[in-house]
Amino acid sequence: MVPDWSEKRRHIMSQGQTAATAGPATDSARHAGTARVKRGMAEMLKGGVIMDVVTAEQARIAEDAGAVAVMALERVPADIRAQGGVARMSDPDMISEIIEALSIPVMAKARIGHFVEAQVLQALGVDYVDESEVLTPADPHHHIDKWSFTVPFVCGATNLGEALRRLAEGAAMIRSKGEAGTGEVSNAVVHMRTIRAEIGRLSTLPAEELYAAAKELRAPVELVTEVARLGRLPVVLFTAGGIATPADAALMMQLGADGVFVGSGIFKSGDPARRARAIVEATTMFNDPDVLVKVSRGLGEAMVGINVAELPPAARYADRGW
């Protein structure tokens, strides 16, 4: 029998971990930062939209529109593309200001492999860290050891093997990478279809072929076995990267996403508040064309897009991470 890998890991990680100093009366029998609490937080975001924001004012617009969480960052991906330079974790003052302004969860991005940025974000009290390819990677070989944190992590993936390697490192939520900052949804579609197809294939394999499948996927066999048994990832799978319209959001939901990250698509458009509301409503009623028609009307200008096919290889964020 194959052991339940995630529970085993959780048990290992809980050794020597102190209970969080939560609430007014801390109880020693409480366990914080467990895999279940981290993954469970993402379960509560399902069917929702997480919006990139760079100021407290934008964060308020996002919360008013019905976002389930916001992602605090210094520049939206479209501006990182346009302006170039090194993209890093946001200014702690800005993150604190956003945390103060909102009642919904606040996420923030750290560079791939930059575990100290993640430590800073955890100390600031952010609710989820995105170890993100949109920022300039800090380590060309190693992602952050996410098990060593109390705060949960979401990571991007372009295929199943990449998703499982991130889970092996302790990620509690996965998102497709897409191609951030382009307003072009094709890469998100490809990544979502690829992950789903690879999961479908695993589910058809006899048990003795899962070892070779794990080798091909470059992922731990315990996780591969778990995915084959469940027929899905053991964590929530959101979509991200290039979603710019309500129809884009509904497309990704119909392709099997559990929820949607919208980056530049909202605050680089003509009427952010209205577009934000429309994308939230389209994500809930993704299967109802009548609602999609209604919410798609009168949104003003969408963000100006970039065709992914025209991007030189060095400008493709989805290729960052390994």
């Binding site: 366990h31 937080m41 009642s103 009290g125």
Partner: peptide, 15 residues
């Protein structure tokens, strides 16, 4: 009281 036990880093399991 909403978020009474704190933020996500304070989320916990207990019997």
């Amino acid at each position: 009281r909403r978020n009474a036990f704190g933020r996500q880093v304070d989320s916990f399991e207990v019997d």
